[in-house]
Write a protein that binds this DNA or RNA. Structure first.
Length: 263
DNA sequence: ATGTCATTGCATCAATGA
């Protein structure tokens, strides 16, 4: 089973690339962020032509998340439970595979803009509510994956230049502490399960020839409970999608699970 | 280089967010 996450920066612009990615990589479940499309305009019929169900939570202009799945959801949750947020950043589904419930939580964390910004306060508050939500979800689901654009580079290894990326948004102590705290609930960053080449990133700024210089950050993550960690057999950053004409500024990130080993 | 890209409003570009 192949599961992926991708900040597409407008589903309208990137729809054909999404289909291409799904089919070429035999993706079963794909989490999307920054769909930037209202629910009335979501192309669920187009996805269904390719055999996928869509679960979406969008708004005008900004944010917007969706899960594209070959498995029909037996449960869908919109947003973070017990947190009123007008920004559409989280959608979750439960699917039943081999008689096990698999919980998929698609997240688009706030960017925060700068450490002095009110948006940074929102980012930290939002992350705290996310952490409470995941804590609760982990007590209900043994097979759980939280994946998406976290807008946090967890360590200095996750930035192309640690002197430039120091005490700024996306790398600050507070953000890294929040991320580590989320992990400590009982999650595994699946990136760390396998050997990865140095300077592996998932996002490159559109400006300054960042991609050709590999001036990137690793801010898109797939976090999973121990039971999922145990059956994960590969982790990949699908960098080829970033090389395409008119790409998203993020590359998709994907994992493969060995379902016959699920327990 | 604050160097790109996508969206919106009311526009044939400026403002905004990332």
């Amino acid at each position: 089973m192949n599961i992926a996450t991708w900040n597409v920066n407008s589903l309208k612009i990137r729809f054909d690339q999404v289909i291409d990615f799904l089919l070429k990589n035999n993706i079963d479940i794909l989490c999307l962020q920054e769909t930037k499309i209202i629910d009335d305009n979501f192309p669920h019929e187009e996805f269904s032509k390719f055999g996928y169900q869509s679960y979406f939570y969008g708004q005008k202009t900004y944010n917007g998340v969706a899960i594209i799945s070959r498995y029909k959801a037996i449960e869908v949750t919109y947003g973070i439970k017990n947190y009123i947020d007008e920004q559409k950043r989280v959608v979750s589904i439960t699917v039943n595979v081999n008689n096990f419930d698999l919980r998929i939580i698609c997240v688009y964390c706030p960017n925060g803009q700068s450490l002095e910004s009110d948006k940074f306060k929102y980012k930290m508050e939002w992350f705290s509510h996310l952490t409470t939500f995941i804590h609760n979800e982990l007590s209900n689901y043994n097979h759980l994956i939280v994946l998406g654009d976290y807008n946090i580079a967890p360590s200095d290894d996750d930035v192309y230049d640690k002197d430039i990326w120091q005490n700024t948004i996306l790398v600050s102590k507070d953000e890294r502490k929040s991320f580590a705290n989320l992990i400590s609930l009982g999650l595994n960053d699946l990136f760390n399960k396998f050997y990865q080449p140095p300077k592996s990133f998932t996002w490159w700024d559109y400006r300054n020839y960042s991609f050709v210089k590999n001036n990137g950050l690793r801010i898109d993550h797939i976090l999973a409970s121990n039971d999922i960690n145990a059956i994960c057999e590969s982790f990949n950053i699908n960098i080829e999608m970033r090389k395409k004409e008119r790409p998203s500024d993020h590359a998709p990130v994907s994992i493969r699970l060995k379902l016959d080993k699920i327990s």
